[in-house]
Design a protein around this nucleic acid. Structure first.
Lengths: 132, 132
DNA sequence: GATAGACCTTACACCTACTGGAAGGTCAAC
DNA sequence: GTTGACCTTCCAGTAGGTGTAAGGTCTATC
């Protein structure tokens, strides 16, 4: 199975697969006589694992750790859990920040007339926090 | 007022101010005889404006537009409002995505025993969406 | 006058997680 | 034998800065 088939089957792009190989997130693919990369079902499992972990929100470095746990039969599930708990905390913090941002934006939108006049609460607010 | 004082007064770092000048988000600072950048209160207003807009979540390109509206007395508040409404929509979409991510992570954490056993719902889930 | 330390300048490299494009080799079909 | 769709590598660019180096300048102290 060559790279574009592996890409389709895993949900990654060929470019991304090559990139993952280059940064050694995944091992080097075996090569056919023509130098083309060749993937088997085990390789595909790894590609899918990474695709899902990325889609779930893990960074490439976190995927590296998850992958090493995935491939280690001696792992303890506690290690996996603490990794995911850490990620959860960071995601929750990001949500709090974005919610705050949304509230600010909503407030700005409500206080701006949105007509042909130049005076505008949004500009005023960004220009001078005090007049808020 | 030289760059580090302007930095302190605006909440940006000197590096960031130089960066903003380099990408022409802000105009070139005037220079003293020694070649040092020199900021007046008007410059400071612009720096503060940008700092607040960035902190509110606007991208540098969005800041560029906001700044040009800020500096244009002929502006219509409707232009400002639609810019901010667009941003609000994007932020809300991001929140939805992060909430989904958080739910997934919470579910994974709950279903992982977190002990010395290797078997773990997180790894299983990432390895094979079907066994989820 | 010399020197130390804190500033300033520019320029280049690095970060994340890819993506686009160029230049060239290979394969399958017609 | 040629076309088009693959494949290969490598380099550059994206956003929004930060780190570091090499060098100039300012101020204070000895």
């Amino acid at each position: 199975m060559n790279i574009s088939q592996a890409a389709k089957a895993s949900g990654l792009s060929p470019k991304t697969i090559r990139y993952y190989e280059r940064i050694e997130l995944i091992g080097p693919a075996s090569r056919g006589e023509n130098g083309y990369r060749d993937y088997n079902t085990k390789d595909l499992d790894v590609l899918r694992f990474v695709q899902r972990a990325r889609a779930t929100g893990f960074s490439v470095e976190e995927c590296r750790q998850l992958l090493s746990l995935y491939q280690n039969p001696e792992r303890h599930s506690s290690e996996v859990k603490s990794l995911v708990q850490g990620k959860l905390k960071r995601v929750e913090a990001q949500i709090v920040e974005l919610n705050h941002m949304r509230d600010t934006l909503q407030d700005l939108v409500q206080r701006c007339p949105g007509n042909e006049v130049a005076q505008c609460a949004i500009i005023d607010n960004l220009a001078d926090q005090e007049t808020c």
